[in-house]
Design a binder for these strands. Structure first.
Length: 270
DNA sequence: ATGCACTCCTGAACGC
DNA sequence: TGCGTTCAGGAGTGCA
């Protein structure tokens, strides 16, 4: 379940393998991911040299010397892994350089790939409406307070809305709200600026710590190297239903918000 | 304009 | 043992 820290980990793992390398072959084995892959994707990438690998929210961006950018989203189960020998059932794309072949594997096919001109990549419909990067300078406490202002949606839904702040998913929304001591069902517009300021800091601290740990590995995420992230061992709330809150000892509760599990401590989060 | 349910997909975990 | 059911969830879509 790749969220921002997992995608950041993948991007960092791709750099040593692809940066500066010529893509001698890019083979599409299965084009029906979340959306059909662009028919010219393989042709546009084959023979190009990778000049930069970046991240925006939960998207990875691979730039080439042909002024193209490959935008990828890992969906739920996407990963890149070195591929030696026969590709597997779910290896949908193969990227070959002098250093070997990298497979994009995605059993559930919720992931997607797009190829656009680098100059207009940020205007792509998937990227244009995204809110600020939570670890960037544009995401300030004032920005979070402004996006919560007047909103009658639960604070957790606001964090999941990529237009308010980009890159947070279910896990880190739960963890950041725990760290800030805010109940996930509380209406965003009714939370005081002081508490939103605390939430702003919690978001940044939680994401930074998760990146430091190589992300969280539940079922699906793995680094490009195959190493697992280990931030899941530090979860305070996510996935801990019935287990004691690490702060007060009360059992962590689970409820469903907008079809997703929310984990929280009713005593510590108000 | 805003909030919400629904939808895509597969594999793992669970229950009988 | 084996089968069926449930769950995981990012984010676009369409509805109220």
């Amino acid at each position: 379940m790749p969220e921002l820290p997992e995608v950041e980990t993948v991007v960092r793992g791709l750099r040593p393998l692809l940066l500066g390398q010529c893509l001698t072959a890019v083979i599409v084995r299965r084009p029906d991911l979340r959306w059909p892959l662009p028919p010219d994707l393989g042709q546009r990438l084959t023979g190009a040299t990778v000049t930069a690998i970046r991240r925006r929210a939960k998207y990875g961006l691979i730039e080439t010397d042909r002024d193209d950018t490959l935008i990828f989203h890992l969906g739920m189960s996407g990963k890149f892994r070195p591929c030696e020998g026969e590709p597997g059932l779910h290896d949908h794309l193969l990227f070959t350089t002098r250093r070997g072949t990298l497979a994009y594997t995605d059993p559930r096919r919720f992931g997607s790939m797009h190829i656009v001109a680098t100059a207009s990549a940020s205007q792509h419909p998937l990227l244009a409406a995204l809110g600020p990067e939570p670890l960037g300078d544009a995401f300030t406490a004032a920005a979070l307070i402004a996006s919560a202002h007047g909103r009658r949606t639960p604070i957790k839904a606001l964090l999941l809305d990529q237009k308010s702040v980009a890159g947070i998913g279910n896990i880190y929304a739960c963890e950041a709200l725990f760290a800030a001591g805010i109940n996930p069902v509380r209406m965003a517009g009714a939370i005081s600026p002081a508490r939103l300021t605390r939430l702003h800091e919690a978001i940044r601290a939680t994401l930074a710590a998760a990146i430091e740990a190589g992300g969280s590995t539940l079922r699906d995420h793995a680094q490009v190297s195959g190493d697992l992230g280990y931030f899941q061992h530090r979860f305070q709330s996510y996935g801990r239903e019935g287990e004691p809150c690490r702060a007060c000892g009360d059992p962590i509760r689970r409820r469903v918000q907008a079809g997703r599990s929310t984990f929280y401590c009713a005593r510590c989060q108000r």
